[in-house]
Each structure stands twice: as C-alpha cells, then as structure tokens.
Amino acid sequence: MTDKTHSAGILLLAAGNGLRFTAAGGKGNKLLAPYADASGQLRPLLALTLAQAAATGLPLHLVTRPQTEEIMALARQFAATVSVLASGGSGDSIAAGVQATANWRGWLIVPGDMAWLTTADYLQVAAALVDETSQARLMWQDIPGHPVGFGSAYFAALSALQGDQGARQLLSPQRLQRLPGHAGVIKDADLPRP
C-alpha cells in the first residue's frame, strides 16, 4: 500500500474555461461531456480521467473553479481533495494545487480532459521520480505528453507559476526523462466528439 503522505501524487487541472471546446461547438462544461468508458457506458469525461488516476493508489488532488459543484462531487466520489480558485490559467492552477499538497514528494501534473491516460501511465511517471530533482514525462512519437512529473525540489518554482504559463518552462533537457507512451498520452478533449 502506498504511503499517501510521503509519495508523489497526481494533480489534476480542472479549472480551465474550455474555450477551444465551446468555440468548436461543444456544449456546457467540457469535463462533464459524456464519453464512453471501456465498456461503452457514457460517463462524464472527468470521471474517466479520475477513475484511471484513482486506481493508482497515489494521492489525488483536483483544482477547479468556483461554482463547479458537479466537478467537486466527482472529485469526492474518487477520494480526491480539491482546491477552488478562479484560475487565470494553468500556472495559477498548478501553483494552487502544489501549495495545497506541500507534503507530497512530487507531482504528476495532468489536465482533467486527458481521459485516455491509463493507470499504468501514471505509475510509470511516478516510478521515474527517483529523487527530489527528478523530472519525467510520457512521449508519443517524439510529441510531449502527460502526465509531467516533478520531484519535490520543484515545490517553490511550481508554487510561483502564474497566469497561463504552465510548468513547461521548468523542464530541463538534461534532467527530463522522456518515457515511452501511446497515443492516449497526447489526446485531450479540446474538440467535441465527432
């Protein structure tokens, strides 16, 4: 059993506005849009992401916007802790989530719409965080994917992120472990289902 107070955890970013999704004709909150699970049953997109993340046994924290009761309820269903803020972008969301989980020994950062990540994907990145200065991310055909993992040495830098500047600027070509992934590590739901 994983010691949840001294392990890396999964930080799910669910505080975006979904502007590309709605601009492309999507209706409502992208994270609540129905998508088929492995058995073909339609479930909210975020529920698919949460199910794979929760199955790892790693600590799970979700950052979302105010007045998103359905999203907060889904997070609780999967035993995720929650931070709420009117985020100005992924930098704000990451900073809030990292500050709320200061006891973790690392963070696996992933947008909430990455429902095609598997439990094994999360565990592969977590296993690569062997010390406090580790960085790791999954790749598919040389395309950077998610999750992106950071060891605990990046607490201050992650906590200082702002606006729409995500954690990409903190990645070091010398430190970053590029791990083999599959097409799902780069697939998100910025566009409505065809």
Rank of each mutant, 00 (worst) to 15 (best):
T119C: 02
L60E: 01
K4C: 10
G88P: 04
L45Y: 07
F155C: 00
L191T: 05
A73N: 13
S83C: 12
N17D: 07
V148Y: 02
D121P: 01
T118V: 02
Q174E: 12
A14I: 05
L58I: 11
L138A: 08
L62R: 05
W140L: 03
G97K: 01
D188M: 13
S87C: 08
Q177Y: 07
T22K: 15
D164K: 15
Q141L: 14
S152N: 05
K187I: 07
R175W: 13
A38M: 01
G106Q: 12
L50E: 01
G28D: 04
S134E: 07
N17H: 09
W104E: 05
A8T: 13
A47V: 03
Q99Y: 12
H182R: 14
T56L: 09
A15C: 05
I71D: 04
V148P: 00
I10R: 01
F78N: 00
A160T: 02
P173T: 07
A51L: 04
G151N: 07
N29D: 15
Q141T: 06
A95E: 02
Y35R: 12
L138C: 10
L13R: 03
L11S: 06
L58K: 09
T101V: 11
D131M: 13
Q124P: 00
L13H: 07
A189N: 12
G25K: 13
K27S: 14
A14F: 05
V98F: 11
G89M: 08
